[in-house]
Design a protein around this nucleic acid. Structure first.
Lengths: 186, 186
DNA sequence: GCCCTTCTAAACCGATCGGTCTACAAAATA
DNA sequence: TATTTTGTAGACCGATCGGTTTAGAAGGGC
């Protein structure tokens, strides 16, 4: 039997393995086992091996956030864009059952390998949110800190939810952060 | 030449390697290289190998937090204990240059290996902070959420600081969280 | 002095690592 | 149908993995 995949499918499958195991924890054998893709297929799609897989996965995640969150924050009406951000975040992280792959990569030494994409993901997110807040009337000095608090709060809620193996932590935390942020624009 | 170590020294050295590389990223050769401890020494102190090293490191970290943060929160006067918590946190994470090893372990599959200690570390922290807040007059329904927000906020600030390679993120974030928490007890 | 415990050093082991290669099946092109 | 392109399967490679073992140096008790 022969199942044919597209590269896009491969990226999504591999992403889930990296998300669960981390970069070092995801060996080629776990990747092949969990994705059901043979080494042949993987090296066909990613000639550069594990490093290329991770790089493309990071780019794929970044593209999703850019489309669903960053671009709206940068270009759309601020209130609507911020509302969209919270629902997209809740969607993406499946109410805390999924973690942020880019945040996870940032913690150990794999950060050094992918410093640029990791950094630009978080910088674009906080900058876009800051701009939207300013556009919505928040004082400039205040907006940057609120934006950082929101993004950091999301990351922290994911860590806590996973550490306690209790997704309700994330579910309860997200609406509170949303209200707290909103309270500064009204 | 022969340098003699105590087990306590070994734990502290190994802890730093796990903190920087993660569990899977810290191979025996990186551990021996960075700690300057030979395999012989390591397996003398930790007959159970890597897994035992990590377990003892987790216990060591937990003991530090218990002494400096959890016990004060559980037994001392609430305001003073909470103040002590913020300074201890700032101390421990060296203003964001260090990450939380237990938080990092929680993100990938090494969480499954050490689920119990990881979970109990965060549960004790949030529970102790919640109790101190209630003792200080915060409504019971409110206190748990404030406690979770504070602990998650710390973890998130560490992720963000490291992702952006900018320790000022943590330095600026911590006092804000401190004020926010304090504002609920006055 | 002596022994015995404690601790270090490194050679060594099978297993697994990331990565390469050959062989070939299925679609696409013609 | 013949040919080329695209993708799959898995044997295979040297390097490194976590772990074991042997050998011996340092220090304390006698």
């Amino acid at each position: 039997m022969r199942t044919v995949f597209e590269k896009t499918d491969a990226i999504a499958l591999v992403a889930e393995v990296f998300r669960e195991c981390g970069y070092e924890g995801a060996s080629m054998s776990t990747i092949t086992a969990r994705t059901r893709l043979s080494k042949g297929s993987l090296y066909h799609f990613f000639p550069g091996g594990k490093e290329e897989m991770a790089a493309e996965v990071l780019a794929h995640v970044d593209a999703w956030f850019a489309r669903e969150i960053f671009v709206p924050l940068e270009t759309a009406e601020p209130r609507a864009a911020i509302a969209q951000m919270w629902t997209a975040v809740d969607d993406y992280f499946r109410s805390g059952k999924r973690i942020c792959l880019i945040g996870a990569f940032a913690l150990d030494e794999t950060r050094d390998r992918f410093a640029r994409p990791i950094r630009s993901y978080f910088e674009r997110w906080t900058n876009a949110l800051e701009a939207a807040l300013i556009c919505d009337g928040v004082p400039a000095g205040h907006a940057k800190q609120l934006a950082e608090d929101a993004v950091a709060g999301i990351q922290g809620a994911l860590v806590l939810a996973r550490a306690m193996a209790d997704e309700t932590v994330f579910e309860r935390s997200l609406p509170r952060m949303r209200l707290r942020l909103a309270s500064h624009t009204t």
